[in-house]
Design a protein around this nucleic acid. Sequence first.
DNA 1: GGCGTGCTGCTTGTATCCAATAATTCAGCC
DNA 2: GGCTGAATTATTGGATACAAGCAGCACGCC
Lengths: 243, 243
Amino acid sequence: MMPSKCLERREPVREQVYTRLKTMVLSGELAPGERLTEEHLARELGVSRTPVREALHKLASEGLIQALPTRGFKVSGESKEEMEEVFELRAVLEGYALGLASRDVDPRKLEELEEYIQGAEEAYARRDTDEVFHWNTRFHDTLNALVSHRSRLHQLIADLRKYVLRYRKDTLSYLSGARRSIDGHKKIMLALRLGDPEVSERIMREHVREAMEDAFQGIQMSPTQKHRPAISKRSKRQEELSS
Amino acid sequence: MMPSKCLERREPVREQVYTRLKTMVLSGELAPGERLTEEHLARELGVSRTPVREALHKLASEGLIQALPTRGFKVSGESKEEMEEVFELRAVLEGYALGLASRDVDPRKLEELEEYIQGAEEAYARRDTDEVFHWNTRFHDTLNALVSHRSRLHQLIADLRKYVLRYRKDTLSYLSGARRSIDGHKKIMLALRLGDPEVSERIMREHVREAMEDAFQGIQMSPTQKHRPAISKRSKRQEELSS
DNA sequence: GGCGTGCTGCTTGTATCCAATAATTCAGCC
DNA sequence: GGCTGAATTATTGGATACAAGCAGCACGCC
């Protein structure tokens, strides 16, 4: 039989749903505290309950949502304590990762990193915080890629970073935060060039902790979330995944 | 299938299967490289594919098994690099955790920890390595419990520890390893009493790294695993979960 | 005799079905 | 009018049914 048109990568629906829901949670489209039920999501996404269920369990294991006893799931709250813990874990793991990376850096990667800093600096001059954020993200992604051979560490850091990205707008909407982060990146470069694991580790920890402070700047977080109704009204609209 | 008349504790079958499979993997009953298919496992455990599948996905997300494209799963290999990475992550995270814990220790917990060391010491005097292992495990579990309010950190450490437990026998079957680990625990106690986060962190890192060295003592690990046939022959026997 | 092609079965992915149960509502009783 | 309890609903957990894909194999062609 002809292999038919299997040219396109056949990504399982489960994965699509997972990615979609994750995006919705991280973007805030699904607000913290909002309740999620398999059936409604399945209808909304135009698939059956099975893949939705698997996606929900996966998200729950990552902490993005949490299982209620027998009432489905709800989007995880964002208590200050929880965010702090995630930032602290980032500080520790990314610190360790930078220490590892600093033992043997590819000069071309250093070049690349410098470019991102340069890009951020120029964006800062234009007071374009979105653009600064963009370059900073590339910077951190590239740093993380330096330890991609340590797959667990790499994955862990990626997950934690995605988790706090939810608050990116808040983080950099103050120019002072942007300034500090760029300066922090410059220090990271110096540590990398120095090639000293311990210094690199310490510098990175400080950097992430500064980012945490800036993220908390002027944001009041309620430890307890009010219970949002449920699925939003636009549930009726059959949004196909293929969009 | 008959609706089982499980009147007692209503633990979801999914969880039972998950726990069961995890045990089988960690105990080596399912050897690294061995292939797992939903259907066979479902038959073997006397349940349907649904809970088996969910358990498999969960195990995969923890890295205990890995998904083959569309061929099911296989028990993860145990290359030296992978074990090293896990031990290194433990060193970093448990180091950080001990630093956190050292800032404010409950004296009763210190008492408890001392008892476990005492127990291990006595077992060591009897050359009972299994017993030493038992007390050492309690010791580490108790330490980890000190940061249970940091749920992510706590969970992460618990997962990583479970992962390397697979090699416990090898780890402590040498008395020198047992000796070193007990001495390490004593140093940890001193660091805790000192109450200095940085010292505690360093001491713990050293301790876990020593444990790694001992775990690798005299063990030859093949980076590539040979492909074991599939499910073992006793698949036919209907082993009910309720056993 | 070697290699390509189609068949067959194993295995997963998804949908649907059924049962069990917690929450909710509503009616009857005090 | 408020409280208690039974019926109703909402929702998950598990089982099964069904489709689709890849692997291995055998057969036939060159």
